[in-house]
Design a protein around this nucleic acid. Structure first.
Lengths: 114, 114
DNA sequence: AAGTTACTTAGCCATTGCGCTAAGTGTCGC
DNA sequence: GCGACACTTAGCGCAATGGCTAAGTAACTT
């Protein structure tokens, strides 16, 4: 629960970039190699790779290298963190004051998390 | 539809910070003034204000000043953009079977299958 | 063996993000 | 009116982001 907030930092930041969201959308249709993913973007490969590494770091995708090809695939489980956060938030304004106390307390404690 | 993506940039980036998520959580319980919101954080007020402005810029909150007090309230509608994106994403990988078939077929045609 | 392919590494640069302090503005309470 | 209060503006510093090029490595292909 403590790393939950820190994970959300990375996840939301990963989602904050249109290139990365587009990659996720593409990977929703199935795994793909780096160069295949990069093709639609007018970006130098090293720049594109940074996005891939960022996505991987956030846990939203996994990658595996076989031979000279690195294949990326989406990590659906990680999206659950977003949904959880959303429904917590929704629960708050729908009047669940019991959860509110726990949630706000946890959120304030987060200041100590790296 | 194009500003949808641009909006998501701002929304996700706003959500990428724990201070801002905590503010949203607090505002889920009802409107609050800047100083009331700032109280739990060990942050100088101008620093905190930047978070408020960021949240306001992303559309996740609205603020209104009466007298010397600025009151903030959550803009629930904006959260729908996140949900929409999430369900679009989910739709991609859940309606994936037909796309997957095409993907695999194409990969096999090119002899790229591992 | 040599060339092509598919990344990788290692920089550089401009911009943005997130914190700070110091000083300013406009209200309110006495 | 005068001070306290609630922001607000201005500017500084540092780290991270998002782009680039140039050059390197490892795995096929021929």
């Amino acid at each position: 629960m403590e790393q939950y907030s820190g994970q959300l930092d990375g996840i939301f930041q990963a989602l904050a970039d249109p290139t990365r969201r587009a990659v996720l959308a593409r990977l929703g249709a199935g795994p793909a190699s780096i160069s295949e993913l990069a093709k639609p973007f007018e970006m130098a490969l090293p720049s594109f790779m940074k996005h891939i590494r960022f996505l991987e770091g956030s846990g939203l995708i996994r990658t595996r290298k076989q031979g000279r090809v690195r294949t990326c695939l989406i990590e659906k489980k990680q999206f659950a963190a977003v949904e959880t956060w959303l429904s917590e938030q929704r629960a708050l304004w729908e009047g669940r004051t019991d959860r509110l106390e726990r949630f706000v307390a946890a959120a304030q404690r987060k200041g100590e998390t790296p």
